[in-house]
Amino acid sequence: MTLRTTLLATACAAIAAPAVADVNIYTTRQPELIQPVMDAFTAQTGIAVNLAYVDDGLVERLKAEGARSPADLVMTVDIANLMQIVEAGVIQPVESDVLTAAVPENLRSSDNLWFGLTTRARIIYASRDRVADGEVTTYEDLASDKWEGRICTRSGVHNYNLALTSAVIAHLGEEGASAWAAGVHENLARKPEGNDRAQVKAIWAGECDISLGNTYYMGQMLSDPEQTEWANSVRIIFPTFENGGTHVNISGVAMTNAAPNRAEALQLMEYLVSPEAQAIYAESNFEYPVLADAPLSELVASWGTFDADTVKLDELAGHRPTALRIMEEVNFDG
């Protein structure tokens, strides 16, 4: 073969060989929280992942971009945010035996539009000094008058609390949930304010004895020298519903309608529910894997075990408008 022939063959091969596409993600999560698992995917596949942090206006951005959107995937937290994306019509169903086998049925869309990646439990932070073991065991307990003036929480209309109230509706019905919300409101030590960590600080300061919060905030507080003392002043209690388990919410992923790199995006979605990725993801964010038997981080495991509620998140999303109305009717934040 002559040199000219060799060069021509090499050039033709280069033209014929398809370039490895990147995967582009719009995320409402801080990129540093998910970068470790993306780096692991790139190391394994050679496919680069580009993260674009979209704090506000995610749905509006996807609708405005339409078919021209560079985004392949959307990653966000909370079932309410996922349902906003569904209702906007900007994502497509994904058929994957890998995803449906890995993600429990109650933690994914019934029509394969979104899939949970990690879970977080909505638990009780309780003062180590002022709350006895066994003093609170259920969400229903929070409405008992024994907690009058002893509860702190963030806004009742925040997505995390609306999801919990939706779960209360699923278990107690609308009338029972309204009575529950009114009872919890009567037991508040102060007007709802701040985030979940602010409630733990209030317990540390003696302003209240228990608060509602997501599990991963304990990990975040223990990682912050200014908040470690707050975290050490409380313990985690996994309440349940009297006829159910502990309420959980998710972080999730969906594929956009545009998805210019669909094959690579699907490859990443399936990787995210693999044992390797689930372990990295859960370790980085102090969350729980959706994949059964995936290892927990040592810290998360130290908080104890719980039985997650099995009500489908699709159902909870349907109760959200009623939950919002109930919180407004009882003037929860007033």
Rank of each mutant, 00 (worst) to 15 (best):
L3N: 10
T6E: 14
L7V: 11
A9C: 12
T10I: 14
A14D: 01
A16W: 06
A19R: 12
V20L: 12
I25C: 02
Q30M: 13
I34H: 01
Q35L: 10
Q35V: 04
V37L: 01
M38Q: 08
D39N: 13
F41E: 03
T45F: 00
G46D: 09
V49Q: 07
N50Y: 00
L51G: 02
A52N: 15
D56H: 15
D56N: 15
L62S: 00
G66S: 07
S69D: 07
A71L: 02
M75K: 08
T76R: 06
V77T: 09
D78W: 15
D78E: 14
N81F: 13
L82D: 10
L82T: 03
M83F: 14
V86Q: 10
P93E: 00
S96N: 03
D97I: 01
L99P: 04
A101I: 07
A101F: 02
A102K: 09
V103E: 11
E105M: 12
E105N: 11
L107H: 01
R108A: 09
R108N: 10
N112I: 09
L117V: 08
R122Q: 13
R122D: 10
S127D: 08
A132Y: 00
G134H: 05
V136E: 01
T138W: 04
R154D: 08
S155L: 12
G156V: 11
Y160V: 14
N161E: 10
L162I: 11
L162G: 06
T165D: 10
G176N: 10
G176C: 04
A179H: 05
E186W: 04
E186S: 14
P192L: 04
R197Y: 09
R197E: 13
Q199K: 11
Q199W: 06
V200S: 02
A205G: 07
D209Q: 12
D209L: 04
S211M: 08
Y217R: 15
M218K: 05
G219F: 10
L222V: 06
E226T: 13
T228S: 09
V234W: 04
V234K: 06
R235K: 11
R235Q: 11
R235V: 04
I237M: 05
T240C: 02
F241D: 04
G244L: 00
G245M: 02
G245W: 00
H247K: 07
H247N: 12
N249C: 07
S251C: 15
A254D: 06
M255N: 07
A258G: 02
A259K: 04
N261W: 09
A263I: 06
E264P: 03
L266D: 00
Q267R: 13
V273H: 08
A277H: 03
A277W: 05
A277V: 02
A277C: 04
I280H: 05
Y281W: 14
A282E: 08
A282Y: 04
S284T: 12
N285D: 15
E287W: 08
Y288E: 10
P289C: 09
A294I: 01
S297M: 01
S297Y: 00
S297C: 03
E298N: 05
E298F: 02
L299Q: 13
V300F: 04
W303M: 14
G304N: 06
G304V: 08
D309M: 05
T310C: 00
T310E: 10
L316M: 11
T322S: 10
I326S: 06
E328Q: 13
E328I: 08
G334D: 15
